[in-house]
Nucleic acid binder design. Structure first.
Lengths: 218, 218
DNA sequence: GTCTATACACTGATAGAC
DNA sequence: GTCTATCAGTGTATAGAC
């Protein structure tokens, strides 16, 4: 009996391991080639697993894609929570912008797949955006509106501010190749990237009148 | 003889007309489906021209795609010139941001194709970016750096500022569907869009210390 | 310049031996 | 759980009649 249990556990662990291998490979290919440009054999090659085995773990390409998208969303949701009532707008936004910039640098693939998905009309993610993303956004809009009402920041449109932060930070993932070419075909150095982060934070904080330094100075 | 000339002119005009028809159709499909997702028969359907005729005008899918990309670049280059020495930073940037926002609203397809192309690694456009875009950018960086050196604006990194403007304005084209869903499944109204434009201009100008009002106020 | 028919390659997916 | 063989369907591209 324990032998049998071990066997099942072993099989389950093989499954987990291979699924992870395939999902990681799929992320690479989907990000670089888009949905239609991705073929199961390319994923198989990337994962170093025979093509038929991919189908064993993920019966269809659509299902594989859905899992990759879900993975990305899970990752974002669990790491996107910086908005609270304890800290100042400047502190919260600084942390949020920096975190999003760091994602763009350390995990650009997810951002690119998401961008692709939105460009194609959010075919697989309409429901997800309509629920989770919308809820997340509406909550944050309320918080920012409170800052405005309290006079903590200038009277700006919260929605536009969030979109600005999303667009600017994700640009460093989605348009990484463009940035690289325009930087003399060299990836941004750590120093250059830190400069970008600092500038974005400075411009946005000052732009909405949340800059602590400014307040002290005036 | 004149009859012959007329015939040639007529054929040329048919060619022009059909090429335009096909390019416009191709823009729609490439923007919505990506490069691989676009098939010649879908383009043919969209253009209401038989599939084989597409091949008559554009021998391969690659060539058709290159022409679409060229079209987009031409359009941008001829309408992107707002940086001069006559106007103030605030005036120049206001006009530039507004123009880019209007492009995103009136012609989002080109922006989406471009985004897709960058995500895929700029396979067809590396040279173009390396020449034309880089030249354009380097010139603008010099101008903005002059503003900084003159004390017209805060000491910010010009490159980061331009990327911020590109990202934010193009977001309204590339992520149009996301914005729509998050707006209760309704396209942004003209009023909402004007609010966004005004907010973006305000935040960026104030953020870099170029806001005329601020100067007057202080 | 228009259009039908078709060659040829590739992809998603399955059957079935191991 | 792994892997080979294979099929049906689709896509690029061309030949050739009109």
């Amino acid at each position: 009996m324990p032998l049998n249990k071990n066997k099942i556990a072993h099989k389950a662990s093989i499954r987990k391991k291979n699924e992870r291998l395939i999902l990681n490979a799929a992320e690479v290919i989907f990000a670089a080639q888009g949905f239609k440009g991705t073929t199961i054999s390319k994923v198989a090659q990337q994962a170093k697993i025979p093509k038929a085995n991919i189908y064993y773990y993920f019966p269809t390409k659509d299902i594989l894609y859905s899992h990759v998208i879900e993975d990305i969303c899970d990752f974002w949701l669990q790491s996107d929570d910086f908005f609270d009532d304890l800290n100042s707008p400047a502190e919260i936004l600084t942390r949020y912008i920096n975190a999003k910039m760091d994602f763009s640098r350390s995990r650009p693939l997810g951002s690119r797949i998401w961008a692709n998905e939105m460009i194609r009309g959010a075919q697989y993610t309409k429901d997800y955006v309509n629920k989770n993303v919308k809820n997340w956004l509406d909550d944050r809009i309320k918080i920012i509106q409170r800052w405005v009402d309290n006079g903590d920041i200038d009277p700006i449109d919260p929605r536009t501010l969030i979109y600005m932060i999303w667009a600017t930070t994700q640009h460093y993932a989605d348009f990484g190749m463009q940035i690289k070419i325009l930087n003399g075909n060299k990836q941004l150095s750590d120093k250059q990237f830190e400069t970008a982060k600092k500038n974005i934070v400075t411009i946005i904080l000052k732009g909405i009148g949340a800059s602590n330094n400014l307040k002290i100075a005036s």
